[in-house]
C-alpha cells in the first residue's frame, strides 16, 4: 500500500493554494503536514480524499484497494447530528462504512464517552464531539487516515488518546495529519506547505 503525490497543484476559488508538491507515504508512515493558516492543508487533505480535483499533477494509490472505501477523513466538521444518541452515531457509522456494529460500545469506551452513550449528541462540548468523530476511526478499521487538525478542541487526555490511536494505527496503516501542534508520534516525513 502506497500513497503517491506527484507535482500536485491545487486551486480554491480560482486561486492557487499550493503547487509543485510531491511526497510518498507507505504503510506504517505518518506524514506531518505543516503550514500557516491558508497554506492549503485542508485543500491537500480534501484532494487526497478525492473531493478536490488537482489543478496539476496527480495523486496515486498503489496496492489492491479502493481508495474511497479505504480511508477515514476527520475534517473540521464532525458529522454529528444533535438529535440522536452517541451510540446511534457509532452504530450508524459502522453500518455506513460496512463494518460490524458490534464494536460500537467498545469504540465509545475507547474515546472516553461510554458513560454518556445514550445521551443525544446536542449535549456534547466541542471536544466531546471531536472524540465522538474519532470513534468512527475505531469502529470501522480502514488503512488510510486523513486527519485535519485532529487535536483541535481536545484536552490533554484527548491529545494523548489521539497519539495512542495513531501509534496503534501506524503498525499497518498510513496517517496524513495536518495541524499546528505535534501529533505525538514521530513523522516519517514533514510536508511544509
Amino acid at each position: 500500500m502506497k500513497l503517491i503525490v506527484e507535482n500536485l497543484a491545487l486551486e480554491r476559488g480560482g486561486r492557487r493554494v499550493l503547487a509543485g508538491l510531491s511526497f510518498e507515504a507507505r504503510a506504517g508512515e505518518f506524514i506531518d503536514v505543516r503550514g500557516r493558516n491558508g497554506a492549503g492543508k485542508t485543500s491537500l487533505l480534501r484532494a487526497l480524499a478525492g473531493w478536490l480535483r488537482p489543478a496539476e499533477g496527480r495523486i496515486r494509490f498503489e496496492g489492491e484497494f479502493e481508495p474511497a472505501t479505504s480511508m477515514h477523513v476527520l475534517g473540521h466538521r464532525d458529522g454529528v447530528k444533535s438529535g440522536i444518541s452517541l451510540i446511534a452515531h457509532v452504530r450508524y457509522w459502522a453500518g455506513l462504512f460496512g463494518a460490524d456494529p458490534a464494536g460500537s460500545e467498545a469504540a465509545l469506551e475507547r474515546v472516553g464517552l461510554a458513560r454518556i452513550a445514550k445521551l443525544p449528541a446536542r449535549v456534547l462540548s466541542a471536544g466531546q464531539s471531536r472524540r465522538l468523530a474519532l470513534s468512527r476511526l475505531i469502529v470501522a478499521p480502514r488503512p488510510i487516515w486523513l486527519l485535519d487538525e485532529p487535536l483541535a478542541s481536545l484536552d490533554e487526555a484527548g491529545r494523548t488518546m489521539v497519539a495512542e490511536l495513531a501509534a496503534e494505527h501506524l503498525k499497518s496503516g498510513i496517517v496524513v495529519a495536518a495541524g499546528h501542534d505535534p501529533l505525538g508520534v514521530p513523522p516519517a516525513s514533514v510536508v511544509t506547505l
Binding site: A49, G50, W51, E66, A68, T69, M71, H72, V73, G75, H76, R77, D78, G79, V80, K81, W93, L96, F97, G98, R136
Partner: peptide, 17 residues
C-alpha cells in the same frame, strides 16, 4: 442542507454504498 453543513455528506462519500 443539514448533512452538508455538519460534514455528514462527506462521510457518505466514503461509504462502500
Amino acid at each position: 442542507q443539514a448533512d452538508l453543513e455538519e460534514g455528514g455528506l462527506e462521510q457518505m462519500l466514503l461509504s462502500p454504498a
